[in-house]
Design a protein around this nucleic acid. Sequence first.
DNA 1: GCGACAG
DNA 2: ATCTTGTCGC
Length: 343
Amino acid sequence: MALEAAGGPPEETLSLWKREQARLKAHVVDRDTEAWQRDPAFSGLQRVGGVDVSFVKGDSVRACASLVVLSFPELEVVYEESRMVSLTAPYVSGFLAFREVPFLLELVQQLREKEPGLMPQVLLVDGNGVLHHRGFGVACHLGVLTDLPCVGVAKKLLQVDGLENNALHKEKIRLLQTRGDSFPLLGDSGTVLGMALRSHDRSTRPLYISVGHRMSLEAAVRLTCCCCRFRIPEPVRQVHLLLCSRRSWESTDGVSVGLLSPWLRAGPSWWPHGHRRCGAPGCQVQALLPGQAGPLQGKADICSREHIRKSLGLPGPPTPRSPKAQRPVACPKGDSGESSALC
DNA sequence: GCGACAG
DNA sequence: ATCTTGTCGC
């Protein structure tokens, strides 16, 4: 307790972590290893996964780790699992993996045991891959440890190796006009560490894509773009939704209802109606309505035909954001222009 | 006027 | 990450 009270982990721990990163980094494969990765239409790719860990405000220990698997190219949820965990490591920039990866590994392992047929062929990871202080971000870390192809998808530029979110960078962003536009992130070291990608026509803010494991940067960018209905790629976005709903039901059973965001409390209109939720170990699958309370529990769940998902493609006015509605768009935006009101 | 550091 | 406000940039 009170480990990270003041200055985070001791220098000793950090250097241990650095050594581990250096050791594992040797196993990173930064090129395409699968046939589908080189195919123009990604034919052969059938399942894309997303993972993330979400936190409970006011609680530095409890968190929720989730894994979802989507069909490709339909992008429908075919598997989702989440579990409450107790974090052991604090967040330290450059060492995100030591905080999150152990739990993500467990989820992958669980899937491997229970539903090997649903194992994703690639994972989109919230965070960076080789675009990292030591070239070994969480996407590489998880990739090496699972031996799954992984892509780092970050929402903010990690300013390393001379990369800076400065005026020049912002100007380059401004030049990204339509979905799919991108520019390389060239570090002072002379290496291309990743790409800034405009993932959606209606979103100005780029994603920062970098290689995690067993995939080229080009394929990573192309795949990410293929997974974007909105700014955030569906696998990652679905994981966020799962985490959010999970948190809300968690809180109805617990103590932090008052800490929930108003968006969630209000019974968000963007919530997939009646979407099934999965919970923690030892529980049952539930049908949870927006804002509805549910027993705290959960278990692996296979939601193959999530026809409910279709609602995501329907006119569900999600975020009555700001007076930025310049465009009469025919598609529902859940999070495009903004940093997502979700999580 | 703040603080730079993925999540 | 979370919460929140509001629309840049030094």
